[in-house]
């Protein structure tokens, strides 16, 4: 068991696995994406209160889920790297950060696109919006730290500490922001009280969520591959790959 884990955690082996898996994952994500889009944009009925504009949830909700999932991946990989010094985990943490930041930005952008017709404004200081914005700032801080430290391994280890600190802080930030907004946000927004979703609306959402999840892993594998190649540029297996690529 440990031996298998060890084998898969070796940069060379993971690089091969990631190379084999990223293309099929991308195709599968594209197929599910198409199915989810058709289901969400064509087949699902318009919402009786929000009309057509509810359809943005098919991008918004999966992005918001992934924005948190990517942070957990980043911090989990960071903690693993701090405890067991697994090189692969450094690469995974570094690769996950820009992806998480992108999904967070996508969630914020689609949210404010939805907010304009629904709330009449692009932005409100609502608890969820604010903590999502702070999550984006945490991602950007991690990336700023990565680019400020030249040595990749040192940068990855410092980033791992920051990511773990962030994971402890995210619930605190989230609940304190929620507390702040319930006390001080005048109740101007009448939101729909979590309506039960019709199945015809829910199924496309789940398809889209799955598509986004697969897309995340496909992109993560591609980014991890390039991280590994740079991390290990002096290793013989990287030279071998480069030689093959040149002779092709």
């Amino acid at each position: 068991m440990i031996k298998t884990l060890h084998k898969y955690a070796s940069p060379m082996h993971f690089h091969a696995v990631a190379r084999a898996w990223s293309a099929p994952l991308l195709w599968l994500a594209a197929a599910l994406f198409l199915a989810g889009l058709v289901g969400g944009l064509v087949l699902a009925p318009a919402d009786y209160q929000q009309g057509e504009s509810f359809r943005i949830i098919y991008v918004h909700v999966p992005s918001a889920w992934l924005s948190m999932f990517a942070y957990l991946v980043m911090a989990g990989a960071g903690a693993t790297s701090l405890i067991w010094r697994v090189k692969l985990m450094d690469a995974i943490a570094r690769a996950a950060a820009p992806l998480g930041a992108s999904f967070t930005a996508l969630a914020l952008a689609t949210g404010s696109l939805w907010g304009k017709p629904m709330w009449g404004t692009w932005w409100v200081w609502d608890a969820r919006l604010t903590s999502e914005l702070l999550l984006l700032l945490l991602y950007l801080g991690y990336m700023a730290l990565q680019s400020a430290i030249d040595d990749r391994r040192a940068a990855a280890r410092a980033g791992a500490v920051l990511a773990v600190v962030g994971v402890v802080n995210i619930p605190i930030i989230h609940y304190s922001v929620e507390w702040w907004s319930t006390l001080h946000q005048p109740a101007t927004i009448t939101r729909l009280g979590a309506p039960a979703m019709a199945t015809s609306m829910l199924i496309p959402l789940l398809l889209m969520a799955l598509a986004f999840q697969l897309l995340f892993f496909a992109l993560l594998f591609i980014r991890v591959r390039s991280e590994l190649l740079e991390f290990e540029q002096r290793a013989s297996w990287v030279r071998e790959i480069l030689r093959q690529a040149r002779s092709r």
């Binding site: 702070l134 304190s176 922001v177």
Partner: peptide
């Protein structure tokens, strides 16, 4: 860089302190 990393983590204290 330090300010960028640390300020988001200070927000809970600011919320409760100013509150």
């Amino acid at each position: 860089l330090l300010a960028l990393l640390i300020l988001p983590l200070y927000i809970p204290v600011l919320i409760f302190g100013a509150g």
